[in-house]
Design a protein around this nucleic acid. Structure first.
Lengths: 125, 125, 125, 125
DNA sequence: GTGGTCTAGACCACT
DNA sequence: GTGGTCTAGACCACG
């Protein structure tokens, strides 16, 4: 499942898991109707509580990324390419909007912002 | 002081205050050695707890934006233009970093990010 | 047998089966002493576990809709018209009771409920 | 807060709480922006775990009935009369639709359904 | 085997 | 004081 946890991070563990899996679904790496691994298995592998995983799974279900079949497991909701693009657009806009506002507040012009973004993008690989 | 609070926001109130005042200092709107209003006054005007204001002030002092003179109040630290630029750089980097990472996670390339940033910058007029 | 399963539904599969077969018996479509198909056959056709079918059959037997002859299979209990009416009454009451309570809780009066019921009944053609 | 729990019921406790409070909000009994009692207080009064209450509160927040201000508490989302009417309509339709389908399945005509509904409505007071 | 619910108890951040 | 997060552990329903 390719989940990486950073226990030191300020963002809650369940959110880290949520955003990574939802990103994988949006990128199309997890096919529609494919099964997610059982929460107990994930918990064992990541060495964190079952409940924390469950909370991430619940959030994924709440936002429509997965669906649960009791007794069988959790499965990826099939999403059309357009839906995935919309979701990505929406998420990205939400993330960046606050940043742009803050940058403007600090007096940065567009070029300065793009410069920083470019630098950070390169660093992030 | 031009502080606007959104009590329902997810970002803590003290942080909202901190970022707005530090932005004003970095932009040079608050001159070096000028006095900040007493916390009780601010608390009354914003209708929030004195403790919250105090926490914002402490954070500002901790990061070197203001200094306290016991019995007299708090004052803006005089900062050279270069220092202000450095601080701005540092704050902006902190803001953007994790969101850029998230954008990469969602499969956006640099051009797409810059495109969105440009659009949002224009929208924020 | 005309059974339709929705695996993603919140109602357990065995209950879906139970209610559909019991409905057929109550409506008189399944004659008394007629044989139900072997559970293995049903399981194969519906592509679900034998255990699930068995649970549905057990529930049907428990409520008196069918009887088992060891080594021969399961058969529909012969029911008089009055008994069928009684059973129907009982089942319907069980279904509607808690939802009527919820409707009252939401502030609907009897006329409003009847209005909605009438509309939905027509829509369900 | 007028919450009544039935531990024997098959419906989870947190759902019982959720539906009762959401019903109160929809009926307009809980004014917009009024504070809900602290989860610990409710837990003590109902003699159930804090976590169960929290789950109910989370569901209420997820569906937009309440909002949380960290450090201060949870508050009722202000809803217009039309919105409340829409929500009620939507909930009631969802509840009754399944019932109507089942009743038709059992061979009841509209008059029979209305008769049962009327009887149950009277009994439920 | 799967997830769903409930429990008790701890630590943290914010006001 | 408030809610937010994480923990461990138990019991149940479903397949």
């Amino acid at each position: 499942m390719d989940i990486v946890i950073n226990p030191q991070s300020q963002t809650p563990i369940y959110q880290q898991i949520f955003s990574q899996i939802s990103a994988q679904i949006i990128r199309g790496e997890l096919a529609g109707d494919s099964a997610l691994p059982p929460i107990r298995t994930v918990a064992r592998e990541l060495k964190i509580s079952v409940i924390t995983i469950k909370k991430a799974w619940e959030e994924l279900e709440h936002q429509g990324f997965i669906y649960t079949v009791t007794g069988k497991g959790c499965f990826v909701t099939p999403l059309s390419l357009e839906k995935r693009a919309d979701l990505r657009e929406h998420l990205v806009t939400g993330l960046l909007q606050k940043d742009i506002v803050s940058c403007r507040e600090l007096g940065l012009d567009l070029d300065a912002i793009i410069g920083t973004v470019t630098k950070l993008y390169a660093d992030a690989e």
